[in-house]
Every structure is written in structure tokens, then in C-alpha cells.
Computed example of a mutant assay.
Amino acid sequence: MSLQKDEKRKYRIKYAVAFIVLIIIEVLIALYVHDNFVRPYIGDVLVVIVLYSAIRVIIPEKYVLMPLYLFVFAAGVEFLQYFKLVQALGLQNNTFFRIILGSTFDWMDILCYGVGCVILGVYEWIVRNRKRCQVTVTK
């Protein structure tokens, strides 16, 4: 499905706003929430949604498999933590890379990424079906 220029701009703005809001939420969680649920689980669910929003700013067209691609990417980064990539690259003292790449492997993180991607898949499905219903009604 090809989007018109104005429609692409509208989607880009919508996803840029979502990205900014979500990244602020993620930073606030990282700085101020020190619990055993929101920070470790909700933060990981949100991270794939943040990535999705960033990608949709660049690529406004819908890709049905985007949530799956994001899951594979996030799980891949998590598995790199299992193999201690940060230490292998000698970046263990660099806070930025420790945060971006992570330093501790956890199966629960992969589960949280999966939950975030399922949420994205449901969102994509709802938006796609709502558009179909609107097209059908206007014909």
C-alpha cells in the first residue's frame, strides 16, 4: 500500500510525537523508578514500542512483519548480552554502551520484548481493519 505525500507526513508527525513521549517515559523510568516491576518489565515492553515509533518516522508505510522484525532484533541484542559483547569490545566502563547494548542476559527481557511486539501486532491489526471498514463504508 502506497501512502500519499500528505498522509506520509501526517504519519511521520504522529510517530515522531509518540517516539518523543515514549522516550521521555523510558528516561523517567530509568531515572526515578527503582521497583521490581515497572523498571524491569514495563521498560522492556516499551523499548520495542519506542523502536517501532522511531522506525515508523523513517518508514511510514505499514509492514505487517515489523513487530516480528523488532522482536528478532531485540532478542538478538539480548543474546549478545549472553555472550558479553560489551566486555568483549572493551566497553564495560562506557555507560552509554552499557545502557544501549545492555550487560546482563535475562530470559524475562526476551519475554517482555515479545509482549511489546504482540501489542504492536494487535495495534497494526486494529489500524488495518479500521481502514478497511472505513473504505468499505465510503464506497
Rank of each mutant, 00 (worst) to 15 (best):
M1C: 15
S2I: 15
S2K: 15
K8E: 14
K10N: 14
Y11M: 15
F19A: 00
I20K: 07
I20V: 09
V21W: 09
V21N: 10
L22V: 02
L22C: 00
I25D: 08
E26Q: 15
E26L: 09
V27G: 02
A30D: 08
A30W: 03
L31M: 14
Y32S: 12
Y32A: 11
V33M: 03
D35E: 03
F37V: 13
V38G: 01
P40T: 01
G43L: 10
D44Y: 08
V45A: 05
L46H: 02
I49L: 11
L51M: 03
L51N: 03
L51T: 10
Y52A: 01
Y52G: 11
S53F: 05
A54C: 00
I55F: 01
I55Y: 10
R56S: 02
R56C: 03
V57H: 07
I58G: 00
I59K: 14
I59S: 12
K62S: 11
K62Y: 04
Y63H: 10
Y63I: 10
V64R: 09
V64Q: 01
V64A: 09
L65V: 01
M66Y: 01
L68R: 10
L68T: 04
F71K: 03
V72H: 07
A74N: 00
A74C: 06
A75I: 11
A75Y: 01
G76N: 06
G76F: 02
G76I: 03
E78V: 08
E78P: 04
F79A: 07
Q81Y: 02
Q81S: 00
Q81M: 02
Y82G: 01
K84R: 06
K84C: 12
L85I: 14
V86Y: 03
Q87I: 11
Q87F: 12
Q87W: 04
A88D: 10
L89K: 13
G90W: 11
L91P: 03
Q92G: 04
N94E: 12
T95D: 15
F96K: 11
F97M: 05
F97P: 06
F97K: 05
F97I: 12
R98T: 14
R98S: 14
R98H: 13
I100R: 01
I100K: 00
L101C: 04
L101Q: 03
G102R: 14
S103L: 04
T104V: 13
T104K: 07
F105A: 02
F105G: 13
D106L: 13
D106N: 02
W107Y: 15
W107G: 13
W107F: 14
M108T: 15
M108W: 11
I110A: 14
L111I: 15
L111P: 08
C112Y: 06
C112K: 14
Y113Q: 06
Y113D: 01
V115P: 06
G116V: 08
I119K: 00
I126M: 13
I126P: 00
V127W: 11
